[in-house]
């Protein structure tokens, strides 16, 4: 943990000084956007939206090349970034997997070998069940699961990743026991729920919106400290803002969100970190970005510098606790 703190300090220093020297650095050649997911994944959409906004508003003189390195749940991209130490022309897009992956798999990079630039949005998690299931709220569903432990199936994307972590948190907070079934992605988990093959999932809004609209599934609560934005009705009776927070609904988890993060390799000058932080800040202020956030029902939150450092440290600690308890840590 000591190492991690020193890394965060170094970053903070870098960002502070970077703010002063901002005008001094500019990309001298095309910038590579390294996407730590396959084409079509959530991170891919995130990076391509940023790319399209930068291109549309001409926020940068140099062009952008997007490469997908999604192997090993994104580890491929982060290792690629680590190897490019000192290269300020490689911007890597990820989630909290950037600092969580090395806990659960033996990987040839450590989070402190990457330089955090910004977090641009928080993706939300909801608890979903089939629309014709006899549960009106989260509480009654959890009661039903508790009554028959190890029979209800919770689907999610991948293993030892956000969905399973959240499932583990729910189990801890309520005493219910699920069977967790890992699928290839959130989309697949959504269809499995609509088809009635699993009992619930914890998908992001955008992964399940289509099935909800069609009346196949319904959300019980959102793992966010406040309700979601957006007053438009999605179904005849409900919109995103009508979904209670899980805390309101009786699951004592205040907050579980996934940051969409941007990184540079280690050993880059503070000026370049500041340049990209500033660039991404500009991106996050455009109407197109707002539109992306609304469409995917994420929470718009731009974090850089000290705030980012604090956020990462607390998110890291929270997840690490779950990993430790579940015995997922590899080192």
């Amino acid at each position: 943990m000591l190492k991690k703190t020193s890394w965060l300090l170094a970053t903070a220093v870098a960002v502070t000084f970077g703010g002063v020297a901002q005008a001094d650095w500019k990309p001298a050649k095309p910038v590579e956007f390294v996407v730590t997911s396959a084409p079509g994944g959530g991170t891919d959409n995130f990076a391509r939206v940023v790319q399209s906004i930068i291109a549309k508003h001409k926020l940068m003189d140099q062009s952008i090349v997007v490469t997908n390195k999604g192997g090993g749940s994104g580890a491929e991209g982060f290792i690629y970034t680590k190897i490019a130490t000192g290269d300020s022309h490689k911007l890597t897009f990820g989630t909290n997997n950037a600092y969580l992956l090395p806990y659960v798999a033996k990987l040839a990079y450590k989070p402190d070998e990457l330089t955090p630039v910004a977090a641009m949005a928080l993706d939300e998690f909801l608890l979903w069940v089939k629309a014709d299931a006899p549960y009106k709220d989260a509480k009654s569903y959890i009661e039903a699961v508790k009554a028959k432990p190890d029979t209800f199936k919770m689907g999610g994307s991948q293993s030892k990743d956000t969905d399973q972590t959240l499932t583990s948190l729910i189990q801890d907070a309520t005493g219910a026991k699920f069977i967790y079934v890992p699928f290839q992605g959130g989309g697949a988990a959504g269809v499995q729920l609509a088809g009635g093959h699993i009992d619930s999932n914890t998908n992001n809004p955008n992964e399940n919106a289509g099935q909800w609209k069609a009346g196949a599934i319904t959300p019980l609560c959102v793992f966010s400290p406040t309700r979601l934005q957006g007053g438009v009705k999605v179904t005849a009776t409900m919109g995103w803002s009508d979904i209670p927070t899980c805390k309101e609904a009786g699951i004592p988890i205040d907050q579980f969100q996934m940051p969409r993060t941007v990184w540079l390799p280690g050993g880059v000058p503070a000026e370049s970190v500041a340049f990209y932080a500033d660039l991404l800040k500009k991106v996050s202020e455009t109407p197109e970005w707002k539109e992306y956030i609304d469409r995917t029902s994420q929470t718009n939150r731009f974090l850089a510098g000290q705030d980012l450092k604090t956020f990462i440290a607390s998110d890291d600690a929270k997840n690490r606790k779950v990993f430790e308890q579940e015995g997922w840590l590899v080192r």
Binding site: K69, E76, V104, A105, D161, Q164
Partner: peptide, 20 residues
């Protein structure tokens, strides 16, 4: 490479090249 079901790496023998 990455095993979806267990979330772990298999048969990579520590080579980064085999991750994906």
């Amino acid at each position: 490479g990455m095993d979806t079901v267990s979330g772990g790496l298999r048969l990579t023998y520590g080579f980064n090249e085999l991750l994906s």
